[in-house]
């Protein structure tokens, strides 16, 4: 038997009418000219999609862990009940007060745990989506990216600022595009409004970080302000993309923030030492402050860019990674102009 499939030409009667697509596009998005001109929707899924992530088994290790947690909770409950009973014996009002306090505390803790659990699930799903898209962006595959990108786009259906961008993506879509090209197209066209908003946020916070460096008198305060500002910036970026940075991404960001805090604190201390040694001339002080402001802005911008990269559902193609040049533009926009 030959290793290749021989050519086939089918007679015209084998043409079937166009079939309904397996996964219809969102109702409010029109079908692009390329789709009409191109091919059956099913073509895009010609190559079967790769297997989804398999469910992990519940092995003996997990049973042991599960039992230990149950044991720990039981001990805690037993301890708490004993404690409350002892208080109640002392005086009923004492027991009731402690009971109420414990009830509120347990409720708050459980709510927090459930929230964190849900968010962790979404982070894991996002990590999987990103990893899949990163793989598709590297390979010469065909027919797998479209569904994944549709799923990524679905997250933003309710966002009015994304309507035009998603429409533009669908209009530019052509069925001949390979997976790598589709990921690039989605990244360039559909993500543009979010990227612009995120870059504006980074520019604003970088400018703010520069300003606070000039104003803060103490190194400790400067470092804390830096931490607070960067956490806010990451939070805002995450809100723009509707996603949190994944576990790995969070680790990278925390490390960068720690680096930044150390550098910012050290710069502040160095500035004071230099001023003490060289004398407090106006020019020297201005120069030192400017250097410190630039350091703060630079670190904030770097963390911001990293946060954008981590929160984005679609990875940037290597040639399109935003850099400090984009932030410089945003910084210019963020600084007050006198005209």
């Amino acid at each position: 038997m030959s290793r290749w499939v021989p050519p086939v030409e089918l007679p015209p009667e084998s043409f079937s009418p166009r079939q309904k697509p397996a996964a219809p596009p969102p109702a409010q998005l029109p079908v692009s000219p390329g789709q009409e001109e191109g091919c059956d929707e099913e073509d895009v899924h010609d190559t079967p999609a790769g297997p989804g992530p398999g469910k992990r088994g519940f092995g003996p290790g997990r049973w042991i862990l599960f039992s230990l947690i149950l044991l720990f909770i039981a001990v805690l409950v037993e301890d708490a009940v004993g404690f409350l009973a002892a208080q109640y014996r002392l005086h009923p009002s004492l027991g009731i007060s402690f009971g109420l306090l414990l009830f509120v505390l347990t409720g708050a803790l459980l709510t927090a745990v459930v929230r964190e659990w849900r968010s962790l699930r979404s982070v894991r799903a996002q990590d999987e989506l990103r990893l899949r898209l990163e793989r598709l962006a590297r390979e010469d595959a065909f027919g797998q990216a479209r569904g994944v990108l549709e799923a990524a786009g679905e997250r933003y259906r309710e966002r009015p600022e994304m309507n035009n961008a998603l429409l533009a993506y669908r209009a530019a879509f052509r069925d001949h595009l390979g997976d790598r090209e589709l990921v690039t197209l989605f990244s360039d066209v559909a993500m543009r409004p979010l990227d612009q908003a995120a870059l504006r946020v980074v520019g604003r916070h970088a400018a703010g970080a520069a300003l606070s460096a000039v104003l803060s008198p103490v190194a400790m305060l400067d470092a804390l302000l830096f931490l607070w500002r960067n956490l806010r910036m990451i939070h805002e970026i995450a809100r723009i993309y509707g996603l949190r940075p994944g576990f790995a991404g969070s680790c990278v960001l925390v490390r960068q923030m720690a680096e930044g805090m150390v550098v910012v604190g050290a710069t502040e201390l160095l500035t004071h030492t230099a001023a003490d040694l060289l004398g407090d001339t106006l020019a020297g002080a201005a120069l030192a402050s400017a250097g410190q402001a630039a350091t703060n802005a630079l670190f904030t911008a770097r963390i911001g860019l990293r946060a954008i990269n981590q929160c984005r559902p679609v990875p940037f193609p290597p040639s399109r990674l935003p850099g400090l040049r984009e932030i410089r533009k945003e910084l210019q926009g963020a600084l007050p102009t006198h005209q």
């Binding site: 499939v5 086939v8 089918l10 084998s14 043409f15 079937s16 001109e37 191109g38 091919c39 059956d40 099913e42 073509d43 010609d46 069925d175 001949h176």
Partner: peptide, 20 residues
């Protein structure tokens, strides 16, 4: 200048991508 469309059909138990 694109002058065909890609169509997937079953043929002899295989799923093949044809040009139309």
């Amino acid at each position: 200048l694109r002058c065909t469309r890609t169509v997937v059909r079953e043929h002899d138990g295989r799923r093949l991508s044809f040009v139309q």
